[in-house]
Design a protein around this nucleic acid. Structure first.
Lengths: 189, 189
DNA sequence: CGTGGCATAGTCGATTTCGACTGTTAGATT
DNA sequence: AATCTAACAGTCGAAATCGACTATGCCACG
């Protein structure tokens, strides 16, 4: 029993992917990269191999045999076991019911907004808002396309969620910037 | 020059704290715990000492001498250097302008909501909403108290932000749950 | 038809992070 | 007065994570 119990966020992502199809690590990575443009922390290759190994040790995932395409190195393909499926559901359930509190770099930085001074704060927040709104727009149209193409909404539900929060953040930034400009949010001396 | 460049989220928190007052590590920890009830990832003690050491090596922080209270072990007090102050501003600015994309456990789990089935999904989301709304209420009244007591709004700005996002999340969960119940969000077969 | 560049795959040593363990003091309880 | 407990403060070895390095196949281009 490992001391630190497989609590890397990648674990859920890997189990989730394997629920759909068996895959070899490198494949998982490209898949995650492709989808996840938006989601899941960017993960380094090495870590992924470590995680898969740990999942095998835990019995949640099992090697399904080796393939080779052309003369490429052997790729071991992994599939979800029954215990793995149970574990996936257990984690999903608990992480939705009571996700552990996580905060983004952005909140962490906003906490010390004061140190930038009113001018600096407005400048930085404005740029953030610009970038974020660009992304929101791109994601919105991308989402529309995907739905148009017949992908069930349930499969892109987390994109809807992310968009919702992004819009809330944009609004918040907007009001704060206004308040600084107008002088209703002031710097203590 | 360290290979991985002090990119732990704690770095910003420590620099930010030291901007206010010099402190010894254990003190920083309690302070962060106190404030941060809400913010900043929960940090283990050991990590904090590692970070402080790295900050000293980077020249952003310097030991200010040792104190002892009663017969307690010596506590080394650290203060921000000038370079440290610059670095803090640099990081703050860049992390607000363009924070690296991070996703919470919750989004990660929502992505695989399907695996819980309609009933399971509703149950899990409902519990999440309940917990979250309890917290929002508590945080709201706590925030009001703090402001009442004369703390400048700027110093609690990130709590306002967090509340805003939490409310957006609550609304989103509400609509999704309704949609599942009503049947406008369906499970593909 | 050689060669440069990119996608494919994975390994491994070094760094980072963690949390269990140690030890002290002040105050509460018996 | 002896004992228990909680807050204080830090250390250190083990585990987790990373990213530089390796190596091959495929395609385009001169």
């Amino acid at each position: 029993m490992p001391r630190r119990a497989l609590d890397n966020p990648l674990v859920l992502a890997v189990l989730g992917l394997l629920l759909e199809n068996p895959a070899h690590p490198y494949q998982m990575l490209s898949e995650l990269r492709k989808r996840g443009e938006n989601r899941a922390t960017v993960i380094s290759r090495g870590t992924l191999y470590d995680i898969v190994e740990a999942l095998v040790a835990a019995g949640w995932v099992a090697p399904q045999g080796k393939q080779r395409t052309g003369n490429r190195p052997e790729r071991t393909v992994y599939a979800l076991t029954d215990t793995g499926r149970e574990e996936l559901v257990r984690r999903l359930d608990s992480q939705i019911r009571n996700p552990r509190r996580e905060f983004t770099q952005f909140v962490g930085a906003v906490a010390y907004l004061g140190a930038l001074g009113p001018t600096g704060a407005v400048a930085a927040l404005t740029e953030r808002a610009q970038r974020l709104s660009d992304r929101v727009e791109a994601d919105e149209s991308h989402l529309a396309e995907v739905l148009e193409s017949g992908v069930p909404r349930l499969h892109v539900i987390e994109a809807e969620y992310a968009l919702r929060l992004a819009r809330a953040e944009l609004e918040w930034i907007g009001t704060v910037v206004d308040e600084i400009r107008v002088g209703s949010l002031t710097w203590p001396t």
